[in-house]
Design a binder for these strands. Structure first.
Length: 939
RNA sequence: GGGUGGUUAGCUCAGUUGGGAGAGCGACGGCCUUACAAGCCGUAGGUCACAGGUUCGACCCCUGUACCACCCACCA
């Protein structure tokens, strides 16, 4: 208010304008340098283990969402005084990382085989050191507050020790074994992958009908059987044809043989229940080495297994010479052509089928016979099921438990070996006879097994599935197998925040492995969040060109850069065109800078019950404006309170006004709502409560209600002190309340406000979290101010509808049979005059007439705004008609209800009474408005 | 084939003990009113997917249908 507040002399206030870029990074650096993120104090432990992002990764919207949720939980619990650890780290992500580095090598015109294993791995480490930290830097931009001093990597030394111990122990417990079986083979990456890494999508294909000759002992063709197949090339490895034992068509040929075309092998015709008589011809070719079902059948019937593929999925030497070395799809064409030439191709039908593809490589996965290591999962799964059934682990939302159970109850053994170079080498050695020794090192094994130097031992070439090591994340990061203080303090962790897409990959396996090794759960709660999609609900993907980068939303990005990011490295140029057009349309001027707090608040506001969230840039803009609102409000509060007596010294007298008591009451309710929201993982409800309190109640109403006391000499010093005190304390409290969600702006303002509110502390991060105090709720103040709001809104409505300038101070008349209204009017006169901009307030006694006026109803009080020179008759008539219509509808509806004998007879008495009261209120209001309409119409 | 979630205002979404349908954004009208035009004031807009049922009363509970999304399994 005073001249002292000009920018030149303003030394303690906030910068004039809200500029997130100017506050966020400096604050973060300060927090980190002060060590604020490390666990402190002796409170109850609270811990979250971050789902370690892929070290090759960059931050995407899903991370942004997930990390924001974790950070809110961490900051909230930290402010509750708990000893809080957010464990951070990254995952070595075997396949993904190896692919990235291989692509680099390819660009250099070389490959990993030329380099050799050791040099290749050095190269990966090298690359990890230089580029791997990107995501952790981006995490800092989000305001995430993990303990960086404890950052871990799933391939660091300590972690390797944990992995080794787990492998060895499971092997000793007979829960890890090695076996030759059919696995999902990725011929591009040339490694086995687990069931989970295979994605089956429906694709258009064909069903080839091949005629197989049934022959007698002399090779004479007796008849032909037709088999249908979607993979004709596998016939080269057929070792039987199967029919259903009950199929009447084929009774006489069961036990006979077929001379396999192109190959010449004699194979039996067998009977098996698995065959569906209705499908195709009811005859199935059986290829035990290249199909999971056929494999089973092969086991049952002791059929030979003929593997016809090599590692690249080319045809190998077990097939006739003609096909050797052919690519599998080339061989398919050739086989079909040869069948046709031999007159053995009956027909080709179009056929939709599910094609299994590798989730990383995208190529068709082949069932392939190899030696692999497996975890026997059944015993581990039994315990893991019990932990959830018994409530030791709870999923939020609960329905994910069903998904978990159904997978766990039908779990298959887990293939954990990968034919890659980047990863944890399997701690197993072989001698020349192929005997297996599992141990910590070659030396240990030689000593244990008494193997002298004359025997050569070679370590298994394979590495472990990445998820094997991430499965140890909750305890491996805390130093296990050492019994560290951190392990004792922070395990089990409190809550796991994750996406549903890795419940099986990660969550389920963590539960199994942790229960087995720690004999306790890895976490008590699993909060499962949805996927972040674009505003249309489309999945964000490079190929769709709809990817948003959280950092771009924080910093802003110009159109050219955005276009470049979205279209670089596109496979198809026509897509590039489309994406350019679509991007230009959506962001003609690029993306503005919104700041981290706005981005985070947007995430929370969209985070309801675990469903996917559609991210609309319009929303973030709204919340950036919200930040700005807070900033400006704080500026206003400082302007009025700095250098003034804010009544914080309890020895000075201060007097709270009704408005003060009202806003304090609402603050308690808001505190309760926010707490409830956080504790039930309803961040949308928590942030909505905050948004509404700050913008509507505090800014729009309370700051206005304060103005009379602050600016007028009609108030005592005690009253002014009370108002300033409330102004500052509510602001300071709400900053703490909002801090877990918007860490930067709250800290920045809090530093300026804490002194005025007589609060101590170096950082808001360790200020105490506000707790609702019901004794501070003053119901009379609430009733009074809510009444006042209705009166003000009624007058504003007339003003707005009648187009009366806001600047025009109005004379207003009030009348009511309820005398309470007169008292309220008098006690709220100053508020009313200010907020509705009134010239005079006149109370009419019963029988007194107001001048010709526009009429409004504020509950049971009539409000009259004289029309003279201000209001158009027709406009007022129209307005009245609108109101009357509304009321008539309500009256009719309630009348219908009350005339229904069943309702009156059966509904609870209080419900009926409520309806009756409403009816009489509405009828009275209606009568007044109709009366008024008459009056005006008759002029 | 089995299962889960969803369908509410133009858009994105809230709405838990069944008792007068809400928010934000957008739209429209009016305002540079001394914190804030990234703002202020006001207004309009919805047979709560559809069909039955339970109930005095259903967005809410039950049954079924349609459409959307996802998970699991899979017939060659």
């Amino acid at each position: 208010m005073s001249d002292q507040q000009t920018p030149e002399t303003q030394t303690t206030g906030l910068a004039k304008a809200y500029q997130p870029s100017e506050i966020e990074t400096p604050l973060y650096q300060h927090w980190e340098s002060q060590g604020y993120f490390a666990p402190q104090g002796d409170g109850e432990p609270f811990s979250i283990m971050i789902p370690p992002p892929n070290v090759t990764g960059y931050l995407h919207m899903g991370h942004g969402f997930q990390e924001s949720i974790m950070d809110a939980l961490i900051r909230y619990n930290r402010m509750l005084g708990k000893k809080t650890l957010w464990q951070v780290g990254t995952d070595h992500a075997g396949i993904a990382t190896q692919m990235v580095v291989e692509r680099l090598l390819e660009a250099e015109g070389t490959n990993r085989h030329e380099l050799g294993r050791e040099k290749f791995i050095d190269r990966v480490w090298d690359w990890k050191e230089h580029s791997g930290g990107q995501i952790t830097q981006q995490l800092r931009r989000l305001g995430a507050s993990p303990d960086w001093s404890r950052e871990r990597f799933t391939m660091d030394d300590g972690f390797y020790k944990a992995v080794q111990e787990v492998f060895i122990k499971l092997y000793e417990d007979k829960l890890i074994y090695r076996g030759k079986r059919l696995v999902n083979w990725d011929p591009k990456l040339k490694t086995a992958v687990s069931d989970l890494e295979v994605l089956s999508e429906e694709e258009n294909g064909f069903l080839w009908h091949l005629r197989y000759p049934v022959t007698d002992e002399n090779g004479k063709v007796l008849q032909h059987l037709t088999v249908a197949t979607t993979r004709p090339e596998t016939m080269l490895g057929d070792t039987a044809v199967a029919v259903n034992p009950n199929d009447e068509r084929y009774q006489d040929i069961i036990g006979k043989t077929i001379t396999l075309p192109l190959v010449g092998r004699e194979i039996p015709i067998i009977a098996d229940d698995y065959v569906d008589q209705e499908f195709g011809t009811g005859c199935v070719k059986i290829t035990p080495a290249h199909d999971f079902n056929d494999y089973e059948m092969g086991q049952r019937h002791k059929l030979p297994m003929i593997n016809i593929l090599d590692d690249d999925a080319n045809i190998n030497d077990n097939a006739p010479e003609k096909y050797r070395g052919m690519d599998r799809f080339e061989a398919r064409k050739q086989v079909v052509a040869d069948f046709e030439a031999a007159g053995l191709l009956e027909k080709i039908d179009d056929h939709k089928l599910k094609v299994p593809r590798g989730d990383r490589s995208g190529v068709v996965i082949e069932p392939y016979l190899t030696d692999q290591w497996y975890v026997k999962t059944q015993p581990l799964a039994d315990e893991a099921i019990k932990a959830v059934e018994g409530g030791d682990i709870q999923f939020v939302p609960k329905q994910y438990e069903n998904m978990y159970f159904s997978w766990m109850r039908d779990i298959q053994d887990w293939c954990i070996s990968r034919q890659l170079w980047w990863g944890h080498r399997i701690p197993a050695w072989y001698d020349e006879q192929g005997n297996v020794y599992v141990g910590r090192s070659e030396e240990e094994i030689r000593e244990r097994e008494n193997i002298d130097a004359s025997v050569t031992l070679t370590q298994d070439e394979d590495v472990l599935d990445t998820w094997f090591s991430s499965g140890l994340w909750t305890f491996g990061t805390l130093g296990w197998p050492e019994q560290t203080e951190f392990l004792k303090t922070f395990h089990p962790s409190s809550v796991l925040v994750t996406g549903f897409d890795i419940i099986f990959f990660w969550v389920a396996r963590m539960i199994m492995l942790t229960l087995h090794f720690k004999k306790e759960v890895p976490f008590h709660t699993v909060y499962v969040h949805g996927l972040v999609r674009d505003s249309q609900g489309q999945k964000m993907s490079k190929s769709k060109g709809n990817v948003l980068d959280p950092i771009d939303l924080i910093d802003g990005v110009d159109l050219d850069t955005l276009l470049d990011k979205r279209t670089s490295g596109m496979m198809q140029p026509q897509m590039q065109k489309k994406i350019t057009k679509q991007t230009k349309k959506e962001f003609p001027d690029g993306i503005e800078s919104y700041g981290t707090d706005a981005l985070r608040f947007t995430y929370y506001s969209l985070a309801s019950t675990g469903r996917d969230i559609n991210f609309d840039v319009g929303r973030i803009e709204g919340f950036r404006n919200f930040c700005n609102k807070i900033w400006n409000a704080a500026n206003y509060v400082l302007m009025n309170c700095e250098g003034q007596d804010c009544g914080q010294d309890n020895s000075t007298d201060y007097e709270l006004s009704k408005a003060d008591r009202w806003i304090i009451s609402l603050l308690q309710q808001t505190e309760a709502a926010v707490k409830e929201g956080i504790e039930t993982y309803r961040f949308d409800l928590a942030t909505q409560a905050l948004y509404n309190f700050i913008w509507q109640e505090y800014c729009s109403w309370y700051l206005e209600l304060c103005k009379p006391a602050l600016n007028s000499d009609d108030y005592t010093d005690a009253q002014k002190r009370g108002t300033r005190r409330t102004l500052v304390r509510v602001l300071e409290t709400v900053l703490r309340l909002a801090h877990p969600f918007m860490p930067f702006i709250t800290e920045e303002i809090w530093q300026k406000v804490k002194g005025l509110a007589a609060v101590e502390g170096d950082t808001i991060m360790y200020a105490t979290y506000p707790q609702a105090d019901n004794s501070k709720i003053d119901q009379n103040a609430i009733d009074d101010i809510e009444w006042l709001k209705v009166v003000i809104t009624t007058i504003r409505n007339i003003r707005g509808e009648m187009n009366i300038s806001q600047a025009k101070a109005l004379p207003v008349y009030f009348q009511s049979t309820n005398a309470d209204n007169q008292a309220k009017l008098e006690s709220n006169q100053a508020f009313l005059t200010k907020l509705a901009n009134l010239d005079t307030i006149t109370w009419l006694q019963t029988g007194e007439e107001a001048p010709l006026s526009a009429t409004g109803l504020a509950a049971d009080m009539d409000v009259f705004v004289p029309m003279a020179g201000l209001i158009d008759l027709d406009a007022e008539l129209a307005r009245l008609n609108k109101e009357i219509d509304k009321l008539e509808k309500e009256v009719a509806r309630i009348n219908g209800k009350l005339n229904n004998e069943k309702f009156v007879g059966k509904a609870p008495a209080d419900v009926v009474q409520k309806e009756k009261d409403k009816l009489s209120d509405y009828q009275a209001a209606l009568a007044k408005l109709v009366d008024q309409r008459e009056k005006i119409a008759n002029l």
